[in-house]
Design a binder for these strands. Structure first.
Length: 876
RNA sequence: GGGCGCGUAGCUCAGUGGGAGAGCGCUCGCUUCACACGCGAGAGGUCGCAGGUUCGAAACCCGCCGCGCCCACCA
């Protein structure tokens, strides 16, 4: 077993065993949209797991005669690489710094401040680091035995990917499917970039519910000269027994109370809402309230989304505390009062100016002065103190645990900040996308529900712009008018022939470089695309869509299979379906095959830290690639699987067993005869044929785990019973030349089938044993055909032959048990056995008597008719 | 709150209408002529709980409990 990986992967590479034939037609091809792993991290056991599943399918299809298109991609663009470069070199990208062509990164990252470098220098470092990562990844995949065509490798930051991505963007822009908008957007305050709905995750965080009193705006509060509720509140607040005045609500309504977990957003409050049917607050609807501390007049309105059971039934709408606020803000046409800056701190706002009116401007400024410049958390602590002092905080804040939305790679909750971003239309295509989900074949089928949940839950179009650096730029510039205003509504698209372009360094046609940023000149779009905006085009990138002189795409697209894990259905799967639908009016692939995760033995998702302890290369070195693949292939489609080195040892045993069984079967003993004459041999071939049919069906259904299980089951049975039963005929050929010739033939048929059935799972050992006696690679050999095996059995086998094998094996088992209980060796001679069984089975056994006698070292075999099967054994 | 999946031997899991299974682990035995990186044998389970359908349920239906995941407008 030692050294098989190195030996055969070298041969496969030399012979181009997995090279895609570019002359193949679409009907001949089986194409795979391989997931490009993120190269900024390390591969872990989970990758080995799911990529093995894909490879097993690829190898099966290849043996079925398909020309397999199996590229590998590296996902190197995006935030993960930026972060890795920052940490690895101790640098930071600063777009205002000029390019330094002689820049070399420090040998050791600085302990202190990160080094500010230009965007082009930063991108160069990203490219350098990912290239070395990619080499390490390729080495691992080769050791694992992935049958990838390494000449079709792509990267998501490469020139082809950039061109395909930019070309696609320009087409969507021309067709109005891509648009730019100044709008409230999900925002990560640490990375200072927009993020998409798909990149959010909920995390439980402790918080507190604050009950806060608003004042009722009286008629006289109209202008700046009106009464000062804040002062009033200060005066009256501590009193439990408040006189009816501006702060008292109207008839039947007590204090105007809201509950909030985000009191720091009170200065951003634009309305109070209640449910239309909520009698408690109906008297207020149509009127106005005044915010505490800031004295801002806000309308009290009704909206059906308000849930009367929550809090006081009266809710404060801020711009913006959460996505519901955005909904209300949009549907009720509320104004914007934004207090949060892009850095997650409360920004300066002009109290008293239009939009920031207050009945007490001085008081508002004073209160806000306590908050400005502070982070959300700091501001929250401070405003609670202020509200408490003013008496507008009712009772103590009540601790609550609540789910908060985070950017999946972020460390602080996302905020909603108004900014200019690019969007791709999704919501308008909801029904079409659901129909695509029905058209797609899902394995396992229930995974479709996740897709449908996601599509049905889309709340807005896909925000694709990111305020980052290492990604595919938007290939557009903007005119700057004479006054220096950037005319965003008039993007200048790049010429197709110039792609890929980087508008931050490239200049649009008709302009000179000096005009960048000048009145009358131009500005480049500063953003890069969401990594999914490029990854959603992997079928087109791998297929070289629109690239020179290539009709590759027509031979591979739409692809046959998209393998991926179930956690990225809402991102990679969804966006790929969207792009293909919009640009090609087609599914990107016929089949989606979903893998599960690898779990720790304690059933938790394998974490990165734990995954790094057991590195994949170490696993492969310790157990061998075939053994690791065996473990992976036991994980059923879509099902999470526990990490289990024990299973790898079993895989190793299977591989060794195949080696030894093949050695026995192919040993240069009697030559194979022309036909099978023994019932035992014929019964074996019949079982083999049935298993081939069953295993092939499983593979056609993408259930590789079942295919392996059934192959393995018959193989172990073959080794434990059939091989033992036929040893007599095999070795003592003189006594029965015809029987010896028959068994030789059966053995050759059997190992030929077993080797090929196991080849997708154990490619190295199978290639080794195949090379002993067959020309060419087993991985290019034809998949076993049950019809060939049935043809061996002309005239057709009858049930008695199968029963002969069954009964002979059962009797042998009883004989072994007797020897085991007597603590004798298995070769211990048996004086006589007496088999009790039904007449039919006894008659069948006659066909296998010779083999049974030799296998058990049995002198005499007697038969006794009985309804109960039993074997009496008399050891010598 | 809605949805999906799961609950079978100590562990990992197969089994979808008729006999409760596999591997690992455990115990015992065996230098066996393909294999000691092996071979043989054994112990071990009220199939989550409770109803129903059926001649018959681990499987089908209803409810409940537990676990995991996905989704949600979680003030």
């Amino acid at each position: 077993m030692e050294g098989l990986e190195a030996k055969w992967s070298e041969v496969w590479e030399r012979d181009g065993a997995y090279r895609f034939d570019r002359t193949a037609t679409r009907e001949q091809v089986f194409s795979i949209d391989t997931p490009p792993p993120t190269v900024s991290g390390s591969l872990h056991v989970g990758h080995v797991f799911s990529y093995t599943h894909t490879d097993v399918i690829a190898r099966y299809q290849r043996m079925r005669g398909k020309v397999v298109f199996y590229p590998m991609g590296w996902d190197d663009n995006g935030l993960p690489t930026e972060r890795r470069v920052q940490n690895h070199y101790g640098v930071r990208c600063d777009p205002s710094v000029d390019y330094d062509p002689r820049f070399t990164p420090p040998a050791e990252p600085s302990e202190k401040e990160p080094l500010s470098i230009s965007r082009p220098n930063f991108v160069e470092l990203c490219l350098q680091l990912t290239e070395s990562d990619e080499q390490a990844f390729e080495a691992l995949w080769r050791t694992l035995g992935l049958s990838v065509d390494w000449s079709t490798t792509y990267t998501t930051i490469g020139r082809v990917a950039q061109r395909v991505s930019q070309r696609s963007f320009l087409e969507l822009l021309a067709r109005g499917e891509a648009y730019q908008l100044q709008a409230p957007t999900l925002w990560d305050v640490d990375f200072q970039t927009a993020v998409a709905q798909a990149e959010l995750e909920d995390r439980e965080r402790p918080g507190a519910m604050h009950r806060v009193r608003f004042a009722r705006a009286s008629e006289g509060d109209g202008g700046a000269a009106g009464a000062a509720p804040r002062g009033e509140a200060e005066a009256d607040g501590p009193e439990a027994d408040r006189p009816g005045g501006a702060n008292a609500a109207g008839p039947g309504v007590g204090d105007i109370l809201i509950e909030t977990t985000r009191p720091e957003l009170i200065p951003a409050c634009v309305a109070l809402l209640t449910h239309p049917d909520d009698a408690r607050w109906s008297a207020l609807v149509g009127g106005e309230a005044l915010t505490p501390l800031f004295g801002t007049r806000v309308p009290v309105l009704a909206h059906p989304l308000v849930e009367p059971d929550k809090g006081t039934g009266l809710v404060m709408v801020c711009t913006f505390g959460d996505l519901t606020d955005v909904t209300w803000w949009r549907e009720l046409s509320l104004p914007v009062r934004a207090v949060l800056g892009e850095d997650g701190r409360l920004r300066e706002v002009p109290w008293g100016a239009p939009g920031w009116e207050s009945v007490d401007v001085a008081g508002a400024r004073a209160s806000y002065g306590e908050l400005v410049g502070r982070s959300v958390n700091q501001a929250r602590r401070r405003i609670v103190e202020l509200l408490s002092e003013s008496g507008e905080l009712i009772g103590e804040p009540e601790p609550v645990n609540r789910a908060v939305k985070f950017f999946e790679k972020g460390e602080r909750p996302v905020e909603i900040v108004t900014s200019r971003q690019w969007f791709f239309k999704t919501v308008a295509h909801r029904e079409e996308l659901l129909a695509r989900g029905v058209e797609l074949q899902w394995h396992p089928h229930y995974m479709r529900a996740r897709y449908e949940d996601w599509v049905n839950g889309l709340t807005g179009d896909w925000c694709v712009s990111r305020q980052r650096f290492f990604g595919v730029p938007f290939p557009v510039w903007y005119e700057i008018d004479g006054s220096g205003t950037v005319l965003y509504e008039r993007p200048i698209p790049a010429e197709e022939a110039r792609l890929p372009v980087d508008p931050s360094t490239d200049v649009p046609d008709g302009y000179a470089p000096e005009q960048r940023g000048q009145p009358g000149g131009f500005a480049g779009d500063p953003d890069v695309m969401d990594t999914w905006a490029t990854s959603s085009l992997t079928p087109q990138i791998a297929g070289m869509a629109g690239e020179d002189a290539s009709d590759l795409l027509a031979r591979v697209f739409p692809m046959d299979m998209r393998p991926q894990a179930h956690d990225i259905i809402r991102t990679w799967l969804f966006t790929t379906v969207l792009r293909s639908h919009l640009e090609r009016d087609s599914l990107p692939w016929r089949v989606a095959a979903l893998s599960g995760w690898v779990l720790d033995p304690d059933r938790k998702k394998m974490s990165k830290s734990k995954g790094n302890v057991v590195t994949p290369m170490h696993l492969l070195e310790e157990h061998g690639a075939d053994a690791v693949r065996y473990w992976a292939a036991n994980g059923r489609p879509g099902t999470d699987t526990a990490f289990d080195p024990q299973q790898m040892k079993v895989g190793r045993r299977l591989a060794v067993k195949l080696l030894n069984a093949s050695k026995f079967a192919l040993a240069d003993l009697p030559p194979a005869g022309e036909r099978l004459t023994s019932a035992i041999d014929r019964a074996l071939i019949a079982r083999l044929a049935a298993t081939v049919e069953d295993v092939t069906r499983s593979f056609e259904d993408y259930d590789y785990a079942r295919a392996l299980q059934h192959t393995e089951e018959l193989f172990w049975w073959f080794c434990d019973y059939y091989l033992e039963l036929v040893k007599g005929r095999r070795y003592d050929s003189a006594g029965d030349p015809e029987g010896a010739a028959s068994v030789s033939r059966a053995l050759r048929l059997a190992v030929s089938v077993f080797q090929r059935l196991l080849a997708p799972f154990l490619p190295f050992v199978c290639e080794e044993v195949w090379s002993w006696w067959q020309p060419g690679s087993i991985h290019l050999a034809q998949w076993p055909d049950a019809a060939d095996l049935w043809a061996e059995l002309e005239p057709a086998a009858d049930a008695t032959e199968d029963e002969a094998l069954t009964v002979a094996a059962e009797v042998l088992s009883e004989v072994r048990k007797a020897k085991s209980e007597a603590r004798r060796p298995m070769r211990a001679p048996v004086e006589q056995i007496r088999v009790h069984d039904t007449p039919a089975r006894l008659q069948a056994l006659q066909l296998g008597l010779g083999d049974l006698r030799a296998a058990g070292a049995i002198e005499r075999i007697e038969s006794v008719e009985s309804d109960e099967f039993a074997v009496e054994v008399e050891l010598a």
